[in-house]
C-alpha cells in the first residue's frame, strides 16, 4: 500500500484562509449545536406526547399516536426536505417567504431533527409511564392531586428513571442523525468531512479524525447520562416491578 500519510495537512491553509483543522472544529461546533438543540426540543415535545398518549382522554391519545406514526415512519432526510422545501410552499405566502429568506437554516434543521427524535422519545416516555403500576396514579389522585400533578410529581419522575437507559441510546444517536442535516446546507462535521476529502487526498487521516470526533461526542453523552443515572438512583428500589390494583 503506498498511501501517503500526512497528518500535518490539518495545519495547512485552505482556500478561505483558515486551516483544515478550523473546518473540523467549526463542523464539530455545528454538529454539537444542532444535536443538543434538537435533543432539548425532542425531550420537551416527546415528553408531552408520551404523557398525552397515556391520559384517559381519547383525543389526546389519538393526536399523540398519529404524531408518532407519521414522524417515526418517514425517513429523516425526507422530513428535513419537507421542512425546507415543502412546508414554505404550503403556508401563507408571507410566512413562506420569511421561512425561505430570513429564517436561519439551522433553526429549520433543529426543528426537523427535533420533531423526528421527539417521536422516539414519546415512545419511550409512554412505555415508562405504562410500566408503572396503576396504583401509583390512583394513590396520587386519592391524595387529591390532579391528573397533571400525578404526572409531574409521581409518574414522570419514576418513568424517566426507568427509561433512562433507552434514552441514553437515543441521545447518542442524535449525533449520528445530525449528519443528515448536511443535506440541507448545515456546515456540520459530515459536510466538512466531505469537503475536505474533495480538496485533499488525505482520506484516511480525515476519516480517522471525524470518526473519533463522533465517537467522542457519543461517549461524552453516554458518560453524562450515566452520571445522571447514578445521581437519581433511588435507594432500596428494585426497578421493574409492576404491581396489581
Amino acid at each position: 500500500m503506498d498511501y501517503h500519510w500526512d497528518w500535518l495537512f490539518f495545519f495547512r491553509e485552505t482556500d478561505d484562509g483558515l486551516k483544515y483543522y478550523d473546518w473540523i472544529l467549526s463542523g464539530l461546533g455545528w454538529t454539537t449545536l444542532v444535536s443538543l438543540a434538537s435533543l432539548a426540543l425532542a425531550l420537551a415535545l416527546g415528553s408531552a406526547l408520551g404523557v398525552m398518549r397515556t391520559t384517559p382522554k381519547r383525543w389526546l391519545v389519538a393526536i399523540g399516536d398519529a404524531y408518532v406514526d407519521v414522524f417515526r415512519n418517514i425517513p429523516l432526510i425526507v422530513q428535513l426536505f419537507m421542512w425546507f422545501f415543502v412546508v414554505p410552499e404550503l403556508v401563507p405566502d408571507r410566512l413562506g417567504m420569511w421561512m425561505k429568506q430570513d429564517l436561519p437554516y439551522v433553526v429549520i434543521a433543529v426543528v426537523g431533527l427535533g420533531l423526528y427524535t421527539a417521536a422516539r422519545i414519546a415512545e419511550q416516555v409512554k412505555a415508562g409511564i405504562n410500566s408503572l403500576s396503576r396504583g401509583q396514579r390512583n394513590a396520587g389522585l386519592a391524595l387529591g392531586l390532579t391528573e397533571w400533578q400525578t404526572y409531574r410529581h409521581v409518574r414522570l419522575p419514576m418513568a424517566y428513571r426507568i427509561v433512562l437507559p433507552a434514552m441514553t441510546s437515543e441521545a447518542m444517536n442524535i449525533f449520528k442523525n445530525s449528519a443528515v442535516t448536511y443535506a440541507v446546507g448545515i456546515l456540520e462535521l459530515y459536510f466538512q468531512y466531505k469537503q475536505i476529502i474533495e480538496k485533499t487526498s488525505q482520506v484516511l487521516e480525515i476519516t480517522i479524525v471525524v470518526t473519533l470526533a463522533y465517537f467522542a461526542l457519543a461517549f461524552l453523552m453516554n458518560r453524562l447520562l450515566a452520571f445522571i443515572e447514578r445521581r437519581t438512583r433511588v435507594p432500596g428500589l428494585i426497578v421493574g416491578g409492576k404491581g396489581s390494583n
Partner: peptide, 21 residues
C-alpha cells in the same frame, strides 16, 4: 371538584403505593 373531594377521603391500598422516588 374531585381533587378537593378526594383530599378529604383517605385511601390505603393493598400494595401500599408509596412514591418510591
Amino acid at each position: 371538584n374531585l381533587p378537593k373531594l378526594r383530599a378529604q377521603v383517605g385511601m390505603v391500598f393493598q400494595n401500599f403505593e408509596l412514591f418510591p422516588h
